[in-house]
Design a protein around this nucleic acid. Structure first.
Lengths: 161, 161
DNA sequence: CTCGGTGCAAATCATTTGCATTAGT
DNA sequence: ACTAATGCAAATGATTTGCACCGAG
């Protein structure tokens, strides 16, 4: 949230204004719908929202935006690398803010309660380097998902259920 | 990786017969459909097949199995940890053999041509340990996906297309 | 003024499900 | 025999798309 103003900054942009600028640079139009959805994603960026969830938040907070537009806008923001599209095998895509500071983290998906937690990014650079050295695949991004049992559910499985 | 023979061995099983036994142990019926699909997955286990692709192979090689049964069987085999369910954001789930020897590897997904390559499993144990130490989340499995450009497509993007 | 963007409804498409029939055990 | 498993076909549910209208540049 600091107001950094100087510096060329990395490819990823994250402040509201930087993103608006990015939209403009790519000759996309700055519609009120896009602004609303972007604002909501900036506010709820860590919540792994699905298109429908975004749609509902919009309906509650602002007036209303067509569901199709929500889909199209989320897709657009993912293409702009503002959002990251995620899949937790619950039958719908989810989006999270691609935060420059936090970069992305790993996801811990509990098979019992379905909750998704986060785990600070770590150790992947070394692996990416290795991928490049051994296969010449140019890594632009990565997603790491751990499937298992969260602390609460570990207790449960032994006794109940 | 070594041929450990003693000990209780890990949970994963992989030979045709071991899997049949596992099906039997869990009181699932050993139907010809399940045997056919299992055989096909053992033969094409590295190909990230979708349900529909399995369905077509069945139709070509053996007689025919209902698509719904293919879905149900793949789901069953995933539950038995014989298969791993994967998602490469192409709108359908894919399945790959959960090979005990190779364990699973990371996936390199090319954003240009869509091809999916594999990369030997590595370095994740350390990270899993860290996850446990810091968050007490019990990791049972993981999936690592690298998104980027394969060697061929790196050339293309600079000139063509 | 001109297109790209939006909203709606209809279309798609993967996956799931109800149910009568079949077949492992 | 007793159920679980199968195979349809119909239902579901997320996502996409066609198209008339609207509004950002």
């Amino acid at each position: 949230m600091g107001q950094l103003t100087r510096g060329k900054s990395k490819e990823l942009s994250n402040t509201y204004n930087e993103i608006l600028e990015k939209i403009h640079d790519r000759d996309y139009k700055l519609t009120p719908q896009r602004q609303v959805i972007l604002r909501i994603m900036l506010e709820h960026g860590h919540q792994h929202l699905s298109a429908e969830e975004v749609y509902n938040i919009v309906k509650r907070e602002a007036s209303e935006i067509g569901l199709a537009t929500v889909y199209r806008t989320l897709e657009l923001l993912a293409e702009l690398e503002v959002l990251q599209k995620l899949n937790f095998d619950d039958g719908r895509s989810r989006y999270e803010l691609n935060d420059r500071e936090v970069h992305h983290h790993h996801h811990l998906v509990c098979i019992q309660c379905g909750r998704v937690m986060e785990f600070a990014e770590d150790l992947l650079e070394e692996l990416e380097k290795k991928v490049w050295n051994e296969s010449k695949f140019l890594v632009l991004d990565h997603q790491v998902k751990f499937i298992g049992l969260c602390q609460e559910c570990q207790g449960k499985t032994e006794k109940d259920q």
